[in-house]
């Protein structure tokens, strides 16, 4: 079974990397999801694979009878799932704003913040804070 898990991990990582390398901004989001799942699965399999023995203390006992699935990676993954969900939504919001502001979905069009400032200047200034930051950085020089 370890072999099968390794195959899944490899596929998830490989596919996610391929998507992250695309120029389409939407594919970036999909790549992020795959990457999160791949990482979780890697940690899960690294903890050791034990089937059907959740780390629960049965009624009447005081410790978990061995063998049991490793609870530590599970705790790690549990929060990781929720966090990567939060990060994903954040990324989607970011992508959405960028698209609205710059009217492009091509990552190669987003090369510099300076240019971002210019473009926003033209497109009804929705990202004023970023423009202000670059401005004040210039003053400081």
């Amino acid at each position: 079974m370890e072999l099968l898990f390794a195959l899944m991990v490899g596929t998830l990582y490989g596919c996610s990397l391929y998507l992250l390398l695309r120029r389409s901004i939407v594919k970036l989001a999909v790549g992020l999801i795959l990457l999160g799942n791949g990482a979780n699965l890697l940690i899960f399999s690294a903890g050791g694979l034990i089937r059907g023995r959740p780390p629960l203390v049965p009624e009447g006992a005081t410790t978990v009878p061995a063998p049991y699935a490793d609870p530590l990676p599970q705790a790690l993954i549990l929060t990781a799932i929720v966090i990567s969900f939060g990060v994903l939504v954040f990324a989607v919001a970011l992508i959405y704003r960028t698209y609205r502001a710059l009217s492009t979905d091509d990552l190669d069009d987003l090369t510099t913040t300076d240019r971002l400032g210019e473009v926003t200047e033209a497109a009804h200034r929705p990202l004023v804070p970023i423009a202000t930051i670059t401005q004040s950085a210039d003053d400081g020089r």
Binding site: V82, V89, A93, Y96
Partner: peptide, 16 residues
């Protein structure tokens, strides 16, 4: 926190 965070995000998206 989980309810609050998820719903904050959900409502913001629903508004758009």
């Amino acid at each position: 926190t989980v309810i609050g965070a998820t719903l904050t995000m959900l409502f913001e998206f629903a508004k758009e």
